[in-house]
């Protein structure tokens, strides 16, 4: 066995020993409890807009219900402990095997991804393959149910969609129907890219996407970035801050004015640095150099924020492992 193989074996052995030890102490670890909620619905006819009666559904006692199903809502483990202490035979709150298995799978995936810090390995590759498959399908499903069904199928097959998915679907007008037919044709043309020949047919929908994106970007960037940022910069430099007694707070006024001046200088000098059609010499060169200082400070702040954001994510993953899975910490008092 190689040195790396031995290291993996030792790490897995230590982890397994720790898990067994943790499982045998206290309330155990890594379990998810759910509460059974019986949904009983009954229908009622009410007068809607323009005197047309419509059916509304509301919760009714189980014996009067025409539609029934059971939902399982996740509850904190302490609710299960309390219910079991009150009545050991209770079954309203119980262990959820699917969610418990999911929790352990989530812990495995978390550790599998983290194992890459040591070296590339089978567990990481397995997790990587899984994330590709799941996320590709996830975004496809979201696109199908959030966009294709209400917009495309809702306009082209409204009866079917309103019967099976969206009874509140508003009927679409002729313009919407025509535009959805166009979208369907362009969409099919786009899929032509997968065909062995005639890939150029996909250039038409691609052209539409590129053109519309370009048009949208001009408007959004000029409106919300260029104009809004310019307007925010073109403020009076001197900012008088009133004091509590009704006069002027000279200390705060000086700092506010200095801050406004520094912002103005920074924006102008930063923009001068981006002026590549003029040689950076003399006054322009000096301003560009000041602009670089401002940009460096901005990049430093961005770096600091990125690191902090990632560390916050890492802390959330550790909280998942130590709180949700191992039950070693309980910051939200879910078990005590």
């Amino acid at each position: 066995m190689t040195r790396q193989g031995k290291t993996w074996l030792v790490m897995c052995g230590v982890l397994a020993a720790l898990l067994i030890a943790r499982g045998l102490t206290g309330e155990g670890l890594g379990r998810v409890y759910v509460k059974k909620v019986e949904v009983s619905l009954g229908s009622e006819q009410v007068a809607g807009a323009q005197g047309v009666s419509q059916t509304i559904w509301k919760e009714v006692p189980a014996d009067k219900a025409t539609m029934k199903w059971v939902e399982w809502n996740q509850v904190a483990p302490k609710e299960f402990f309390a219910a079991r202490a009150a009545n050991p035979a209770q079954d309203s709150i119980s262990l959820s095997w699917p969610r418990t298995i999911g929790l352990w799978l989530g812990a495995f995936f978390t550790l599998a991804i983290m194992s890459f810090l040591y070296a590339d390995n089978i567990a990481y590759k397995l997790a990587e393959a899984t994330v590709i498959g799941v996320s590709a399908a996830y975004w496809m499903v979201i696109g199908f149910w959030e966009t294709l069904v209400p917009k495309l199928f809702g306009a082209l097959t409204p009866t079917l969609v309103s019967k099976l998915v969206l009874p509140s679907l508003q009927p679409s007008d002729v313009v919407q129907q025509i535009s959805m037919w166009v979208a369907l044709v362009l969409g099919v043309m786009m899929l032509w890219r997968l065909a062995p020949r005639g890939g150029w047919i996909a250039a038409w929908p691609l052209a539409f996407i590129v053109g519309v994106t370009a048009g949208l970007k001009i408007v959004s960037h000029v409106e919300s970035d260029l104009m809004a940022q310019a307007a925010a910069t073109m403020q009076p430099i001197v900012e008088v801050v009133p004091s509590a007694t009704g006069g002027t707070d000279w200390y705060a006024t000086t700092w506010a004015t200095l801050a406004n001046a520094l912002v103005l200088v920074g924006v102008v000098c930063g923009l001068v640095y981006f002026l590549f059609s003029v040689q950076h010499k003399g006054v322009i060169g000096g301003a560009a150099r000041v602009g670089v200082w401002y940009l460096m400070i901005t990049f430093g702040a961005a770096f600091g924020f990125t690191v902090m954001g990632r560390i916050a994510l890492l802390a959330a993953r550790f909280e998942f492992l130590f709180d949700d899975w191992l039950w070693l910490i309980d910051p939200n008092h879910l078990r005590s």
Partner: peptide, 22 residues
Amino acid sequence: VFNTAGNRAIIVGIALGVAATS
């Protein structure tokens, strides 16, 4: 102060670049 100014310069630069490319 400094981050706002630097970001504004970058955002205005990006907006001009996007508008020109579009």
